[in-house]
């Protein structure tokens, strides 16, 4: 692929077991696995999507949810241009946790960061609306107050998953081939500059064009 590719670094945050990894798996592989192993530290995945004739490459950091590891999160969200804060619509505790994350990102992270609030597991409600413990309106209201995108998703059925990422992609200023040399952090890397570790012998030449 020769056209310019915009890379977006995105981080997923949220309480343990709300389905962060499952959302990423759905987005990246259009797959679902009930027994996805708990994430430790973080997992890294990428996915490309075409948005308005442009290719956007998401570089996704999927973090561990348990509060005990929350102190590590800044390592992952620093330099990130986007974040998904995920909660489980059947677990009110996870919504409280989402509020904490929003606060932390507003205080600590990149000011231009695009944040989406995501209520996951709506598939559980299909048969039984009683399972819902966080009203849709509650989520909408919080998102509006904080200036976030808002989606209710199901990683299991795929509902709204790609839509969430596309919406984020649309809000991030795209780069043209001309301004490939990107911000000071050098977050964006074009295809040509991609590191190729399997072929490390030749890779020195490939990284020569790097911005730093």
């Amino acid at each position: 692929m020769n056209s310019a590719v915009t890379s977006i670094k995105l981080v997923l945050l949220g309480e343990a077991a709300v389905g962060k990894s499952s959302i990423v798996l759905r987005f990246v592989s259009n797959d679902f696995s009930e027994n996805k192993e708990p994430t430790i530290g973080a997992a890294f995945l990428t996915q490309r999507v075409n948005i308005n004739d442009n290719t956007v490459k998401f570089e996704i950091w999927d973090t561990a949810g348990q509060e005990r590891f929350a102190s590590l999160a800044p390592m992952y969200y620093r330099n990130a241009q986007a974040a998904l804060i995920v909660y489980d619509v059947t677990k009110p505790q996870s919504f409280i946790k989402a509020r904490h994350w929003i606060k932390e990102l507003h205080e600590q992270a990149n000011k231009d960061m695009i944040i989406a609030l995501v209520g996951n597991k709506v598939d559980v409600l299909e048969n039984n609306e009683d399972e819902r413990k966080v009203a849709r309106e509650e989520g909408e209201k919080l998102a509006e107050e904080e200036g976030l995108l808002f989606f209710e998703t199901s990683a299991k059925t795929g509902l709204n998953v790609t839509e969430t990422f596309v919406a984020i992609g649309e809000k991030i200023p795209l780069k043209t081939a001309g301004d490939q040399e990107t911000d000071s952090n050098g977050v964006a890397i074009s295809d040509e500059q991609r590191i190729d570790l399997a072929n490390s012998g030749n890779a020195a030449g490939q990284t020569a064009g790097c911005s730093c």
Binding site: F44, E59, M75, D196, L197, S200, A204, C210, C212
Partner: peptide
């Protein structure tokens, strides 16, 4: 030879 940034190193070891 190949890695120049924090994220790249992190990803490599991940």
């Amino acid at each position: 030879n190949n890695l120049t940034q924090f994220d790249q190193v992190l990803k490599y070891f991940n």
